[in-house]
Design a binder for these strands. Structure first.
Length: 489
RNA sequence: CGGGGCGUGGCGCAGCUCGGUAGCGCGCCUGCUUUGGGAGCAGGAGGUCCCCGGUUCGAAUCCGGGCGCCCCGACCA
């Protein structure tokens, strides 16, 4: 059996993480390559995960006072060009529509790489007075950034995301909004994805093009690389100035509004894979799994099949009534073993096996996709108990995944004095993921750190900072702040 | 954008050096037997060999040109 597993299994993560990732995405049927370079088809299993992410996030946005809206795919080129830093950041990766209706357009349209410009131009129409503020909108959309090097979910030319865009009457309020959203992202990543990020502020070099400040969630993947998983920007009045987004204040003065924008994308699916996946395949946290419990009937004769299939249906119905996303695999042309492998590859958290023996004994065999230390992977339990405890098992699995990811993040975090770029590079070479160090604030250090492929991921928020602040700097100079270094996706 | 690799049934590949009937594994279809960790046997379907041009009696194979994709590095959610 070991031989067979080896033959049909995935490239082990320790051997080639990148190959493992590509294989797992294809073999778990999360996504596939379409005939268009750099883009992807998200298959039902992958899209199901994304839909669950969307639902959770959407609920959180709504609960915090945001509404959804939709803005156009095409943006006049002149809009993108209006904010100086913004255009600098995006110009190289724009896809431009120059022809339509059989004619060359007078002004080309860009396919949105992000929607700040068109949205704030609309806000300027809608806002006259401070009474019209704040505007708290979000849109679920696709965007396009012409990427040179792409990877399924992690970086594709077209991707799906949500982009929130808000306008406020004061800087404080905008600042608070940006921080609130960062908190929502963090909560979502921890509670739903079981992917605990570090949060903080981006450096000038790493911030969003056009923003005053960018905040981000950075998660540590199993291979020790950091993934920027969500960003929230305080845009100041940069866009408001360019698009005439003004309002009359209580005092009667005309003022520019303060904006924020924030987003997470289908990249999160990639993060999920690289956080929890193992050499058998994907592991989907129960709260995001399109199918939480897969019931596999096992039978020899047609008679047996009739019995177990009926039992499987009953179990599925009972679980569904209890709010569990359950399904049964009634395909008869596949052996049970083949089904086991398939659903494990796809990362379904729990499997219930129902064979003639089990039915006779009033039992089912429960199999966990991941187990805690000392916990049985497979056990036969009375059917009634299984049905009663499924919700609890799923909850425990969710917790277990978060604990595991937390432990890996801690194990991959290096704290202590780092006094040179070379030392930083050595630490990363030795397997460190997040390296905390002091920083002088000099962008030149960031430039030099590129030699060891390291970037400052964040100036971490208070709770992530080291107990004793570092005194030395990764790149020389006086330590003014603590930063988190990593090699990043 | 630089470097590397690859384009041959749905997928993974061999064949190419040395030109001559297009092959293997998996998958797929049919039938029978199976089913508690990737089922077995028998029969069967399925190909503009990436494209264009050249050489040749004859090109998957040799020559020229193009296109596409994947992987590794610099920039980016």
């Amino acid at each position: 059996m070991a031989k067979k597993t080896k033959k049909k299994g995935l490239t082990p993560r320790c051997e080639d993480f990148s190959a493992w990732y590509n294989e797992v995405v294809l073999q778990a049927e999360l996504a596939d390559y379409p005939p268009v370079r750099g883009s992807m088809v998200i298959r039902p299993w992958g899209y199901g995960i994304w839909e669950n992410m969307q639902r959770a996030l959407d609920d959180m946005f709504k609960a915090s006072g945001h509404q959804n809206a939709y803005f156009p795919l095409l943006i006049p080129m002149s809009f993108i060009e209006r904010e100086k830093e913004h255009v600098k950041g995006f110009k190289p990766e724009l896809a431009v529509v120059t022809h339509a209706g059989g004619k060359e357009l007078e002004e080309p349209y860009v396919i949105r790489p992000t929607s700040e410009t068109i949205i704030y131009s609309m806000y300027s129409k809608w806002v006259q007075s401070y009474r019209d503020l704040p505007i708290l909108l979000n849109q679920w959309a696709n965007v396009m950034r012409w990427e040179l090097r792409t990877r399924l979910f992690l970086r594709t030319s077209e991707f799906l995301w949500q982009e929130g865009h808000t306008a406020h009457a004061s800087q404080d309020e905008a600042e608070e909004e940006a921080r609130t959203i960062l908190g929502i992202y963090r909560t979502f990543m921890e509670d739903w994805m079981a992917m605990p990020p570090v949060t903080g502020l981006k450096t000038e070099a790493e911030k969003f093009a056009g923003a005053v400040r960018s905040y981000a969630c950075e998660a540590l993947m199993q291979d020790g690389k950091a993934l920027q998983a969500g960003t929230s920007h305080m845009l100041g009045q940069n866009f408001a100035r360019q698009f005439g987004l003004t309002f009359q204040s209580k005092e009667g003065r005309e003022e520019f509004a303060w904006n924020t924008s924030w987003g997470v994308s289908t990249r999160l699916v990639g993060g999920l894979i690289m956080t929890h996946g193992d050499d058998m395949g994907v592991v989907v946290p129960p709260k995001l799994a399109p199918i939480q419990v897969i019931v596999v009937p096992i039978a020899r004769s047609d008679d047996e099949w009739a019995t177990v299939a009926e039992k499987a249906r009953q179990i599925v119905n009972t679980l569904r009534d209890a709010g569990v996303r359950a399904d049964a695999d009634h395909r008869r042309h596949l052996s049970p073993g083949a089904k086991f492998f398939e659903w494990e590859r796809k990362g379904v958290p729990l499997r219930l096996e129902v064979g003639p023996r089990d039915v006779a004994r009033g039992e089912v065999v429960v199999v966990r996709r991941v187990t805690a230390e000392g916990e049985a992977r497979k056990e036969a339990v009375p059917e009634a108990r299984a049905l009663g405890e499924t919700a609890g098992w799923l909850k425990a699995l969710q917790t277990l995944l978060l604990q595991g990811a937390r432990a890996r993040r801690e194990a991959g975090t290096h704290r202590g004095e780092v006094s040179s770029v070379e030392e930083l590079g050595a630490l990363l070479d030795e397997g460190a993921g997040f390296v905390y160090s002091g920083w002088s604030g000099d962008p030149d250090v960031e430039e030099r750190a590129k030699d060891v492929r390291a970037t400052i991921r964040l100036i971490p928020d208070e709770e992530f900072r080291s107990a004793t602040a570092p005194t030395r700097c990764a790149g020389g100079g006086e330590a003014r702040t603590e930063v988190v270094w990593a090699r990043a996706y």
